[in-house]
Write a protein that binds this DNA or RNA. Structure first.
Length: 502
RNA sequence: GGUCCUUUGGCCGAGUGGCUUAGGCAAAGCUCUGCAAAAGCUUCUACAGCGGUUCGAAUCCGCUAGGGACCUCCA
């Protein structure tokens, strides 16, 4: 089965065929590093990390570009244009670039916690001012942008006359063009008066004197509009036409719509073959976002230091939580849901550890052909489900179908010759590939270390001895106190004991 | 106001026109156990409401109700 991807642009699932066979160019809108990342930000980066990993698994050579937006944009309309980055910097008494660096570092730290693969290229907006200016000049020369008072605006009306502006986001162009005249649009965009039409968007903004972040341009000192950076950097590193552009659904309009317009004018063709958008993470049914005042920062997530959290959550728990739902569905956050994911992940990973240690026999044919083929089928579906627009929840469901079988094999409830050696080997391989390589999950309980292991073995030996002497006081003491320390003792049928961090 | 999406069992969440209609968490019972835990087995089992299309719909269409997103910085 071939990989199918839901294309936001056509609103259909399409067979994925890369523009250049064997190669994939993927651009994902990265963070604005003027503040700390929150749980909502985790979704696209984890979702597209899995996309990247899966494409790699499918033998594509992927160039994965994810930008860092470190040039400030507007904060509030109806007031004087303010650079978000420089404003915050004054509050915190930091240099703008110092602030940007701080949050970039924090973002990178969080990505590492989530075990996200680093992008191939991570370009910054401030590092590509020249490219953006060149692109704006090109748009002006082609007649689709105009200069007013040192700012440059994209002429949406002119573009819409010959192009389908609004197709991606499902906007009706007449309404956009009409927006400035409508009563319900009471909030005035900055610079609205100097635009030819309300729907026009800024390519370059003249910087007021108090603006710290500013660059020289043919139109005076200023800073780039929000949308142009992605167009410029994507074009530079992936070309005029590339395969996948990803981001949150909230970026559909105006960001991605505008990107299409800009790039189409400059490159004479639509820039992106497959647009992918992840849905939002909500809290109590409401999107997590600054304006709603309901964000949980990632540092709070990992520390449990937030009123909505009953405990700290491991980054892998968050990652698993996100993978348990489809990337295009909204995902409602709650502490309970996270706790459920935590337990589920632990159960799954424990089974995986057991699986890794199961001995592979030379059993050529299964004694229980029905079970053997059921397992084979579940394993084969891993790839089938992922091929169907990255159906990670269904893959996980299949893994949970197999988990009890793994445990039963270990406990002898299912004899080893029930399944063939090749099937067992396939189980090991498939779990390893999908759990670790594709889903990017890692062991949560990797506190095991060289010193602790022999000490634990010593304690378990003493306990075993005590048990065989019916000295249950001693054996229970060891067990109970270890439990208090957060170490779980598991006895199996053969009298063997394993342990793990609870 | 416009555009679009969504509504699944106690909770979270997959999913397909029909074949017993995932999975996880929680709960209950059982097996195992010195007692537990872990593990295994079993049970509980839904598709907002109303109408329509169909031999047959939770799955397609319409209406109603609830929820949400975007239209503004936003993942």
């Amino acid at each position: 089965m071939a990989l199918h991807i839901y294309n936001s642009y056509t609103r259909k699932k399409e067979i994925f065929e890369s523009i250049t066979p064997g190669y994939v160019g993927m651009y994902v809108c990265g963070p604005t590093v003027s503040g700390e990342s929150h749980l909502g930000h985790a979704r696209p980066y984890i979702s597209f990390d899995v996309v990247y990993r899966y494409l790699t698994y499918k033998k594509y050579k992927v160039r994965y570009v994810r930008n860092i937006t470190d040039a400030g944009h507007f904060e509030e309309e109806g007031r004087e244009a303010e650079d978000k980055v420089s404003k915050k910097a004054q509050i915190e008494k930091l240099e703008p670039m110092e602030l940007v660096q701080k949050y970039t570092n924090l973002f990178h730290w969080a990505m590492k916690q989530f075990n996200c693969v680093e992008p191939s290229i991570e370009p910054t907006a401030t590092g590509h001012i020249v490219e953006q200016i060149v692109m704006i000049e090109d748009i002006i020369s082609k007649g689709y942008a105009y200069v007013v008072n040192g700012s440059v605006y994209f002429d949406v009306k002119k573009y819409a006359a010959s192009h389908d502006y609004g197709k991606l986001s499902g906007r009706v162009i007449d309404e956009l063009l009409d927006a400035g005249n409508r009563e319900d649009v009471s909030r005035e965009l900055d610079g609205q008066q100097e635009k030819r039409d309300a729907a026009d968007f800024a390519l370059w903004k003249a910087a007021p004197p108090e603006h710290i972040m500013r660059w020289k341009s043919p139109w005076g000192e200023g800073f780039p509009g929000w949308h142009i950076e992605c167009s410029a950097m994507a074009t530079k590193y992936l070309g005029s036409n590339f395969d996948i552009h990803g981001g949150g659904m909230d970026l559909l309009f105006p960001h991605h719509e505008s990107e299409i317009a800009q790039s189409t004018i400059c490159n004479h063709s639509a820039p992106v073959k497959y647009w992918m958008h992840n849905n939002m993470i909500t809290i109590n049914g409401r999107k997590m976002g600054k304006s709603y005042n309901n964000v949980i920062k990632l540092t709070e997530m990992f520390s449990g230091n937030h009123p909505l959290l009953t405990q700290a959550f491991h980054p892998m728990t968050v990652r698993f939580f996100i993978l348990q739902s489809h990337y295009r569905s909204t995902l409602d956050f709650s502490s309970e849901a996270l706790s459920a994911s935590e337990k589920a992940l632990k159960r799954l990973w424990d089974a995986y550890e057991v699986l890794k240690n199961l001995p592979v026999s030379n059993n050529a044919s299964p004694n229980d052909a029905e079970l053997d083929s059921k397992i084979t089928n579940w394993l084969n579906e891993f790839e089938i489900f992922m091929d169907d627009d990255f159906g990670s929840p269904r893959v996980i469901a299949n893994m949970f179908e197999i988990a009890p079988i793994i445990n039963s094999l270990k406990d002898g409830l299912i004899p080893f010759d029930a399944i063939s050696a090749s099937t067992l080997q396939k189980m090991k391989d498939s779990f390893q590939v999908f759990l670790e390589d594709v889903f990017g999950l890692t062991n949560v309980n990797d506190q095991n270390n060289e010193l602790l292991n022999p000490i634990m073995q010593l304690l378990l030996d003493i306990r075993k001895e005590a048990k065989s002497n019916k000295d249950f006081a001693t054996s229970d003491k060891i067990r109970n106190q270890l439990t208090q320390l957060g170490i779980l003792i598991k006895d199996d049928k053969e009298g063997n004991t394993t342990w793990g961090v609870a």
